[in-house]
């Protein structure tokens, strides 16, 4: 397997990809922040202005460069899949990288859409309860007290199923909450990763 540098927007992207690669390919990706590991880019659009030196150094060091970003939704400040794809295709030639846009390299969206589709059956049942709870709060004008965000919801699921208030780090390998292995929703992402990773034998 070639050495690689993985460029992501934030630490959630990094944590998710590390777990996914471990579960699917039994491969441990380094969590080092640098060439040969992960580079955090602090959002889309910073590839060249903030990270050009990392792309150059990584290429010179013989690494493959992979970029993972949200496709996002087309509005004033973000791109949407088509625009993002067009923008990154131009940059990829200059900075020498391959890229995948969350959630499926086809639609608008983001990593959160992937994660919603990776909730276990049990976690999805909790989501149904939380939807009722949030609806009720909103009716009473208290929606802002506990906003219906993805991360809030996952915290509440973890709190309900794992008996912890807020984990220091989200554990995507916990099958009580996350359904990663053989999840058909992840097929486009795994097809992309298949180009760069091969399964490593387990030491069992």
């Amino acid at each position: 397997m070639k050495k690689m540098t993985i460029f992501v927007e934030n630490t959630t992207d990094m944590d998710f990809l590390r777990k996914l690669v471990k579960i699917i390919y039994n491969h441990d990706l380094s969590d080092q922040r640098g060439v040969g590991g992960f580079i955090l880019m602090s959002g889309a659009g910073n590839e060249k202005s903030q990270n050009k030196a990392y792309f150059e150094k990584s290429t010179d060091s013989g690494c493959v460069n992979l970029v993972f970003e949200d496709a996002d939704y087309k509005n004033n400040s973000t791109y949407g899949f088509e625009k993002q794809k067009e923008r990154l295709e131009k940059l990829a030639e200059e900075l020498n990288f391959d890229f995948f846009l969350f959630p499926n390299h086809q639609d608008d969206g983001n990593l959160e859409i992937i994660l919603e589709n990776c909730l276990s059956k049990r976690a999805s049942e909790i989501v149904a309860c939380l939807n009722v709870y949030h609806e009720c709060l909103e009716k009473k004008g208290l929606g802002h007290k506990n906003p219906k965000t993805y991360h809030n919801r996952w915290n509440m699921i973890e709190s309900a199923l794992l008996d912890i208030k807020k984990p220091e780090k989200r554990d995507f390998s916990d099958e009580q909450i996350w359904f990663i292995k053989e999840n058909p929703y992840l097929a486009p992402l795994i097809n992309f990763l298949d180009q760069y990773f091969t399964s490593e034998p387990s030491l069992k």
Partner: peptide, 29 residues
Amino acid sequence: EMVELPNGSVKSYTRGYEEFANAIDLGNN
């Protein structure tokens, strides 16, 4: 940033203030 490349040569990578500050803030090496 001075780096020894696999072929033994040494190359420097230039970061202006903004790129440098961003890397420090994000904890990138």
